[in-house]
Simulated scan of single mutants.
Amino acid sequence: MARFTVTQVVHAPATSVWAVMVDWRRHGDWAPLTAVRVTTSRPDGVGAEFVARTGIGWLAFDDPMTVELWRPPGGNDPGDEPGRCEVVKRGRVVLGRAGFSVVPLDSGRCRVDWDEDVTVTPHRVTRFAGPLLSFAGRVGFGATLRAMAGDVERQSR
């Protein structure tokens, strides 16, 4: 398995960040070479499904996901219940789990913790290249979360 966690402080309220993070189509605005489409009638809540297509031409692959946990943040103040969303990845290339928490902080800020525990097919790739895949995930999702934070912070002003 390739496991990693990325953390980003966002200078915006937790409920605002949650709303942006669960707007699945917007992930393509921050993740390079990625377009996301929702494949269920409802984009929110447990059971929602969406597909992230990443890459160019014949090097692209689909990453279908289903929401298994949906708990919006309880508010924007420190001590309010954090939000948590978890998805299962069920594609031919990437399998496993991903999720994020949105934790309210003081001064109208929040912290986003993104974590993944995935296997890439063929499975022997993950077995031998797990540390490299984890590093690449931290770098890639770190950049994605920074782009999301910048976008949300500009909207909040």
Rank of each mutant, 00 (worst) to 15 (best):
G130I: 07
E68G: 08
G47H: 05
A149Q: 05
V152D: 01
V17S: 07
P82C: 10
R127Q: 13
R111K: 10
G55S: 01
R3A: 10
G96D: 08
V125A: 13
P82N: 10
R124E: 08
M1N: 11
T5M: 01
A143I: 02
S156C: 06
P43C: 07
L33T: 08
R3F: 14
T126Q: 06
T121W: 00
V93F: 15
R53A: 06
F100Y: 15
G91I: 11
T66A: 11
V112C: 06
A129I: 02
P131D: 02
R146N: 06
R26H: 04
D80G: 09
P32W: 03
V51I: 14
A136V: 13
L95Y: 06
H123F: 13
R37M: 07
V10S: 02
L69Q: 13
V102I: 11
G91Y: 10
P131M: 00
S101V: 14
V22T: 15
V94Y: 02
T5P: 00
V38E: 05
T34V: 09
P82S: 05
P78W: 06
G47W: 07
G96I: 07
R111H: 02
R25Q: 15
V36G: 04
A149Y: 05
R138M: 10
V51C: 06
T34P: 01
R84K: 13
R97A: 09
P32N: 11
A35R: 14
V51A: 07
M1T: 15
P32S: 14
R37W: 00
V118W: 14
V152W: 05
F50G: 04
T54E: 07
Q8T: 11
W58D: 08
P82L: 08
F141K: 08
T121G: 01
A35L: 01
M65W: 00
W30T: 07
W70N: 02
L69D: 09
F135P: 04
G99H: 05
P64T: 12
A2H: 06
G57S: 04
D44A: 12
P82W: 12
V139K: 12
P43N: 07
T15E: 14
T119A: 08
V36Y: 07
G28S: 11
R42N: 15
M1I: 13
M148E: 09
R124Y: 14
P43M: 12
F141N: 11
